[in-house]
């Protein structure tokens, strides 16, 4: 059974994520209100402005339904602003005066960690979980992960050791934007997690093979 993936469509580059899923032939849906989450096997929180997305999650009653989605074991992946919204905490220096977070991912993130837009960059990253060939990673006013809780596994680092992708059980965060490069391996990997989660939550399935 193929998974069905939702992309949170409150603000940001959700169309780019939907386009990547379309290239992979994956069933997909925009999520704007709580009822859009029904029957989904995975959820992507796109890039955008974290203060805006966080406020709109709060305003339109999506906070509890997304927390419940996470508790059910289905995978959630946040890119850039999406990772910030997933985080437990934003470091006080870069936190907005009102910053709504979901608090799911046990990390502290630093927003806009590289400086103003002119410091935005592209680079090649080794991400063994996704494949042996390096991944082209685009960092736009990007955050970094500055503290990781005990259950959080780093998935990718910059050459200086800075953590820019993490995983904690069914939660994934990347500081960069695989949806902007046309290289859909990260999306394919995420969809495999969603497929596995679907297999283990369906009633006829007794065991839960790990990815």
């Amino acid at each position: 059974m193929e998974p069905r993936i939702g992309v949170l469509a409150l603000q940001g580059d959700f169309q780019e994520h939907l386009a990547a899923l379309a290239r992979l032939g994956i069933a997909r849906r925009e999520v704007k209100l709580p009822h859009d989450l029904v029957d989904l096997d995975g959820l992507i929180l796109p890039g955008g402005e974290s203060t805006t997305i966080g406020r709109l999650i709060h305003r339109f009653g999506l906070r509890e339904p997304i927390l419940e989605f996470a508790r059910s074991g289905r995978p959630i992946w946040g890119t850039c602003a999406g990772m910030i919204v997933l985080a437990r905490e934003v470091d006080p220096e870069t936190r907005a005066r009102t910053q709504h977070l979901l608090g799911l991912l046990d990390v502290v993130v630093r927003r806009n960690a590289f400086g103003p837009q002119i410091e935005s960059f592209e680079t090649e990253l080794e991400i063994p979980a996704v494949g042996s060939e390096p991944v082209r990673a685009v960092f736009i006013r990007a955050p970094v992960v500055c503290e990781l809780g005990p259950a959080v596994e780093p998935l990718a680092r910059l050459p200086d050791g800075t953590v820019v992708a993490v995983r904690q059980d069914n939660l994934i965060g990347t500081a960069f934007h695989p949806e902007l490069t046309g290289d859909d391996r990260f999306h394919a990997w995420f969809c495999r997690q969603a497929r596995a989660a679907r297999a283990c939550t369906s009633p006829e399935q007794a065991s839960c093979p790990a990815e």
Partner: peptide, 20 residues
């Protein structure tokens, strides 16, 4: 590492989409 590429310039605008 390449800074300020066409992708990062257009990319910031992509992050602003659906916004005010």
């Amino acid at each position: 590492m390449e800074k300020s590429t066409w992708t990062t310039k257009v990319g910031l605008a992509q992050m602003l989409k659906g916004g005010v």
